[in-house]
Amino acid sequence: MIDDQTVDYQRLYDLLAGSDSVVVVCHDNPDPDSLSSALALSVVAEQLGVGTVTIAYGGAISHQQNRAMVNALDIGLTPITECTLADFALVAFVDHSIPGRNNSVDEEMTPDIVIDHHPSEEVNGQYVDHRPNVGATATILTRYLQAYELELDERLATALLFGIHRETLSFTRETTAAEHAAASYLHSLADHSLIESLSNSVFTCETLSGIGDAIANREVRGSCLVSSLGRIHERDILPQAADYLLKLEGVSTTVVFGIVDDNIQLSARTNNSQLHIGELLKNTFDEDGSAGGHHDMAGGQIPLGLLGPVDEDDEVATDLLNQSVKKRLFSALDSWAES
């Protein structure tokens, strides 16, 4: 079971029950773990009598599975650009913890509530439940539903179970006993046919083309692969391409990056147990933007302005930028291998 002996469930209960409004903020481009966790916390807030509950997100919902999940489970979302956080009595972060890092929140603000499983330093808030030893934030929110003995319907059970499935790659990545315990609790109520349907959501044409570009543009050195997609519109192509390329024989680490709007977005994967890819990305790029993540999966973004302006039609400048990012990545990977 999840290790929650030091968690003060009553404190969050009292905080929510005494509030008239809360905005639950997902990380940018929210995935199923973030979406299901936000839905769960919003349900907890509603059942505790909070009058106004809003789920906000930054970025876009471009991954075909994420769009299908939002539509099938009727998850009400509001772009963060249409919210004024100061209008809410409480601001809650789920599946992320640091303002301005992988979220569209001013880095000077401090959230009231943080519930997250990603490795991070100096997490602040009135109420913080930070468990990097757990495989999914949806697992933690499932425990809150159990602790409060609140009603759990098919919609929420399906969302949470799908969130755990996706975050752990069907219980094959960073899975702990807590995920199995949560899945056992959710299993009887969840709609398994819908979970199967969501898991088999079809690729968009751009996603398929992006994965093809990642294959064509790959550069491999030893067991490490780096690929650039140039300018793309769907950020979620990157993690899908990084996952796909990790299947290449002889490759144990992949990093795929592309230009999305005014940022370079990166997604990395590794099955090398000796490499902490989140720490490697953080050490390489965090001073320029924000980067980091887990032992075997990570991401980051760098504002284009820090590396020089790149006109959308300037192929030479884009190529130079691609070579610069690749050089930094391979240099970092080489340094790690030599250490």
Rank of each mutant, 00 (worst) to 15 (best):
D74C: 02
D74Q: 06
D74L: 03
I75Y: 12
I75L: 15
I75F: 11
I75K: 07
G76M: 11
G76V: 06
L77D: 04
L77Q: 03
L77R: 03
L77W: 00
T78N: 03
P79Q: 03
P79E: 02
P79D: 09
I80D: 04
I80G: 08
T81S: 12
T81Q: 01
E82T: 15
E82C: 10
E82F: 08
E82W: 02
T84R: 07
T84H: 00
T84E: 12
T84P: 00
L85G: 13
L85V: 04
A86W: 02
A86D: 15
A86M: 04
A86R: 13
D87I: 00
D87E: 01
F88Y: 15
F88M: 06
F88A: 13
A89K: 15
A89D: 13
A89S: 14
A89N: 00
L90V: 13
L90Y: 05
V91K: 03
V91R: 09
V91Y: 04
V91L: 13
A92G: 13
A92H: 11
A92Q: 13
F93A: 07
F93Y: 10
F93K: 10
F93I: 07
V94W: 02
V94I: 10
D95Q: 07
D95F: 11
H96K: 04
H96A: 09
H96Y: 15
H96G: 05
H96Q: 14
S97Q: 05
S97F: 01
I98Y: 03
I98N: 11
P99E: 10
G100R: 10
N102A: 13
N102I: 11
N103T: 10
N103M: 08
N103I: 14
N103Y: 14
S104I: 00
S104F: 07
S104R: 04
V105R: 06
V105M: 15
V105L: 15
D106R: 14
D106W: 13
D106F: 05
E107T: 08
E107F: 08
E107S: 14
E108F: 04
M109I: 15
M109S: 13
M109Y: 06
M109H: 03
M109R: 15
T110V: 06
T110E: 01
P111I: 13
D112V: 06
D112Q: 12
D112P: 02
D112C: 03
I113F: 05
I113Y: 00
I113A: 11
V114A: 08
V114H: 06
V114L: 12
I115S: 10
D116W: 11
D116T: 05
D116E: 09
H117T: 14
H117K: 12
S120Q: 08
S120R: 13
S120V: 05
